[in-house]
Design a protein around this nucleic acid. Structure first.
Lengths: 346, 346
DNA sequence: TCTCTTTCAGAGAACGTTCACAATTATTAT
DNA sequence: ATAATAATTGTGAACGTTCTCTGAAAGAGA
């Protein structure tokens, strides 16, 4: 109330002067050192309260070499669905969260190096790397990130890096086998951009299973994970090869776009074509018809990434390992046996 | 190639030693001071390259008092749609982005104070506050954030704070007048949670306009901005008062939920009920029917927030002001004249 | 040649903390 | 009472920069 707006925040020395002790004693108090008498503790705490003192983290960082910050390097800041979990986990453990979106020009590796160097200048304690990219190699990353513990999220580069990911193969298998078990034999795919690790595995696995089960892959198109691209891909598919009954899309956005295209062509879902997406975004439960899709638990993914990173911080020399989470098939009304009546009641 | 992995990064002194100059000269080089001979410049740059030296930002911060970081304090990290713009803007100007999600227990104001103090310990250069909340007052915030320039995003607290926002009144007006102009006279509303600034204004404005135009507000329900809540709200609305032809929802998620509920009841959109959402999320163009909604340009909002903050950093004593952006009505197929045939071709 | 400027380089302090000691005081055992 | 020990407090240095000076060298004008 009566405090004047201080021109600059109070320091350890200000508190020490007011409490009549040395700055070191104040340092002990804020670091909860056991060896401080209850009497001085009281005095110092009063002085801290009176001056509204808070330790300056950057000064502390300089001497300890720790910043109490986790840096997230992500390819796409907008679609960073594990951000809430990462934020939650970091703050629960007293860490701050910093964020950099990676932008590449022509030379990806050089840009990545520059980006990581830039990040390193502010000395984060750990790094979460969300580059769902098939391009970078394990050795590149290990070379670039020399001194900072890091965990790769949603990408498997090799067995020498710590990583957390959701089993894409398994998710794809569940989706395709669901369609096969309904009796579908004629498939179409809308693939995602093949630079992406996830997209690549989904495409690859789907093809492998279809071949193994002697089901027919009538046609495939590639989109860029967006709804418009899914719409257009489905249009091309329907124009060129209308003979399929099952459509597997590499993500929910493209699946929604595809559903729109199918309906615009006057075809019914799932009567004429069954559609499966990937991710279980919230709209999938409410679109028309509600979409069968593969749920990825991004919250768990983010949380595990942080747990993994923290265990690395505590024991830096543990052998690198990977944590694999499993997706879940969510069956809704966009899939049915080929030619079945619209299954609103299913 | 032949470099050994250094245990700790090179410092100014390492570079100085290698180049045979004083550390101060190296400092001058990295700060592009004009007074350094081209000869020493060359030497120093070579040493920098050889050691792969990068200045330590935390040491620099300590002495300059600047951290080159912008901190974003947001109520909801997950729904932070202006994050990409903020990230983009910050990095373009050489700033790092830090992120804190605000979590409140019982005493909001105390929690906010603690949160801001915590943020202040790492000395960000500027603060972006995204608390779309009707609870906090201008004076609270000014008291709490003493030394850090800040811009409030998506909330108008008073004329003494710098803020950037999208005109919610105008957006609501466009939506309601659109429905009125189609001939609707019987309205229902699904309001958002009234602690939210946006939700409050949307509710208030809609009621005001309906009253002014002598249209009938048949019923209203409140949701929490989620799809399930929109679904349930619409169910209640339909059970208790089925006599409305126009439904205005405080956001797209609830509108999508409501559309599902309406269709589940066997009613047609827009033939029986026209639905309008708010935000123009990407799925609105692809759901069934494509949704009429009010577009908010979150990218522009985020960018303006940063521009505003930067102008504050450059000229700290400029008088506080607000920047107001305007939304846009996107008419799709979920609205039509009451009783009109389904307007797929519209 | 001598002074006066200008250009360049270096020395010392400072930023606000923590760390490794040393110094003091209180407590206990003999 | 007295040494031995434990508990508490204080001092000086360090972290890696930038800032403010001061000093040296080089160039220009007399």
């Amino acid at each position: 109330m009566s405090e004047k707006p201080l021109p600059s925040p109070a320091t350890l020395h200000d508190v020490a002067r007011l409490a009549g002790v040395s700055y070191q004693t104040v340092s002990r108090v804020i670091n909860h050192s056991p060896n401080v008498s209850s009497e001085t503790l009281e005095k110092v705490n009063q002085a801290i309260a009176a001056l509204n003192y808070r330790p300056n983290r950057v000064a502390r960082s300089l001497v300890t070499g720790k910043s109490n910050a986790i840096h997230v390097l992500a390819l796409d800041v907008y679609h960073l669905r594990m951000l809430p979990a990462m934020h939650e986990g970091a703050h629960q453990n007293g860490y701050q969260l910093r964020l950099t979106g990676f932008r590449s020009s022509d030379d990806t590796l050089r840009d990545l190096a520059a980006c990581l160097q830039e990040i390193a200048t502010s000395r984060p304690d750990g790094l979460l790397i969300v580059l769902p990219w098939a391009l970078t190699t394990e050795q590149d990353l290990i070379d670039l990130v020399r001194n900072i513990p890091f965990v790769v999220v949603g990408n498997r580069l090799g067995y020498g890096t710590n990583a957390v990911l959701i089993d894409q193969r398994e998710g794809t298998r569940m989706a395709i086998e669901h369609l096969l078990s309904l009796g579908h034999r004629k498939f179409a795919l809308i693939d995602g951009p093949q630079q992406y690790y996830d997209a690549q595995i989904r495409s690859e696995t789907a093809r492998k299973i279809l071949a193994a089960q002697q089901a027919e892959l009538v046609a495939s198109e590639q989109g860029n994970f967006s709804m418009p691209s899914g719409y257009e891909a489905a249009q091309r598919l329907l124009d060129q090869a209308p003979a399929f009954t099952a459509l597997f899309c590499a993500n929910d956005e493209m699946a929604l776009g595809a559903m729109r295209a199918i309906k615009d062509k006057g075809l019914r879902i799932p009567h004429d074509i069954s559609v499966v997406g990937f991710d279980d975004l919230s709209f999938t439960a409410y679109c028309d018809p509600p979409m069968t899709t593969v749920r990825q638990d991004f919250y768990a993914l983010g949380m595990h990434a942080l747990q993994h990173l923290f265990s690395l911080l505590k024991a830096p020399n543990t052998a690198p390992h990977q944590r694999l989470l499993y997706p879940e098939l969510i069956v809704r009304s966009s899939t049915a046996a080929p030619g079945a009546r619209s299954a609103r009641g299913e």
